[in-house]
Design a protein around this nucleic acid. Structure first.
Lengths: 245, 245
DNA sequence: GCGATTCGTTGACCTGGATCAATGCGCGGC
DNA sequence: GCCGCGCATTGATCCAGGTCAACGAATCGC
């Protein structure tokens, strides 16, 4: 079972890159480089797991024993302050890698938003894995570099943008989610709650709600249902978001 | 000349890791793996350059032709909004790599704070470089993973911490700058201006100034001169900073 | 069908940090 | 020595977004 599962998930050149953050990324096909005989060995040390929405599968501060590759669903990554304030550092979907960092404890928590499926590897075997599959290492480096760019963009948002600008940036990001480079959807749905959006944008749920209402009243977007958005004026939103992403 | 220059900078296992963000990082010695004969080849494609303080050596949006390895001095990395608002995403010193991302334009600007020296490589040769020196790739991956952790910490700061907490976190980070894991200095100097600190912490210079004054009046720190800080009460500061870093 | 619960919206009010403005303080040039 | 300039500090005021509170609107268990 595992070999069939492993190929499309770990090795799919499309899954692992966030197309929004990496418009110029040229996905490297890792697929072709791994022989089928090796796939068995790879699969032998991977454990495929599924989680229910709301379930935490990585806990900040716990020993970082595993390395994850998400294969389906969406999860949120977050950090907490002692008093419970939360910052969501990202939403991750199929193809993302978690637990890369050289540290013996996890630096963040991860919780499933939708039902999430992932491959889990023992971190102690990661070194070996990378030595055996050098193209996987190249892949990880690309992914990490692109996440770094996205993180810098998010710091700009959190440090310097107004609530309006944050929501505009966020909606554009979501409209490009899972789309090929340079493309976006006019209509899309948000898998996360207002509270998640607020904690991602460094705002409160009230401000998120009010700002969405305002953007709608100005004709920039439509909020069809709680989770369903239509972008009515993409260039207007882009002007608000400031710059590219 | 270049071989002698290249060895300590590109290959020094200590320089490239930010000790604060990566307390648990076990630096991998890349040194030992590269033969001296190879060093010549490596040096042949590197250009060593120096910049004056205030000089911009990377411009956001420009074609990303080069890949940099800082070998001395401190620089600030930042992103700008169209109206001039600025977010400094990090201060980088000796050992840091810049221009890793898979993108054909730079995602941020870099400006020297102190006199900065760096090695510059053509990005078009990066692939070749990494193929020839696989350990360098491992190294880059480690560095990138650790920067990602630091970036998440900074997102928590920007999204959820108060001005007081931001300053406390910042001062602790600076007190650990360049120190081995788990160590810090009581007394240290800040190479950057208040304006840089403000743009790094998502505040204004006035708030930075006022908050430092407040922390001093409470006996947590001493501001000996503009650029010189003494931490009087480390655990008090840590309590404020919330959590580890 | 109907409480109970959770999530989202809206309004009234408050406050932390921004903004605006004045002043202090090195430091380099001459 | 003194002027000019850039950086830092301090005070007064303002406002974007937070907080508190009330109220809809889906969803679920029974």
């Amino acid at each position: 079972m595992s070999a069939q599962l492993a190929r499309p998930h770990i090795l799919d050149p499309h899954g692992a890159l966030d197309p929004c953050a990496t418009c110029e990324a040229r996905p490297v096909s890792v697929c072709n480089a791994i022989a089928d005989t090796d796939l068995g060995r790879l699969a032998a040390i991977a454990v495929v797991t599924e989680t229910e929405p709301g379930q935490c599968f990585i806990d900040e501060g716990e020993p970082a024993n595993s390395f994850f590759n998400i294969t389906a669903g969406t999860a949120k990554l977050f950090k907490l302050l002692p008093d419970g304030r939360r910052q969501i550092t990202g939403f991750v979907g199929a193809g993302h890698f978690l637990g890369l960092a050289v540290s013996d404890t996890y630096a963040f928590s991860a919780e499933a938003i939708e039902r999430v499926r992932f491959c889990r590897f023992q971190r102690s075997k990661l070194r070996m894995l990378l030595d055996d599959f050098p193209l996987m290492e190249k892949r990880l480096l690309e992914v990490a570099a692109n996440e770094l760019v996205a993180a810098q963009e998010q710091m700009l948002l959190l440090g310097r943008k107004t609530a309006r600008e944050r929501l505009a940036s966020f909606l554009l990001l979501q409209s490009r989610q899972g789309m090929p480079c340079g493309h976006s959807r006019r209509r899309f749905s948000l898998p996360m709650t207002r509270s998640d959006i607020a904690d991602y944008l460094g705002l409160t749920i009230e401000t998120v709600s009010r700002t969405l209402t305002k953007l709608r009243s100005e004709g920039l977007i439509d909020v069809v249902s709680q989770a369903e958005i239509i972008v009515r004026n993409p260039s207007g939103l882009e002007g608000l978001a400031g710059g590219l992403c």
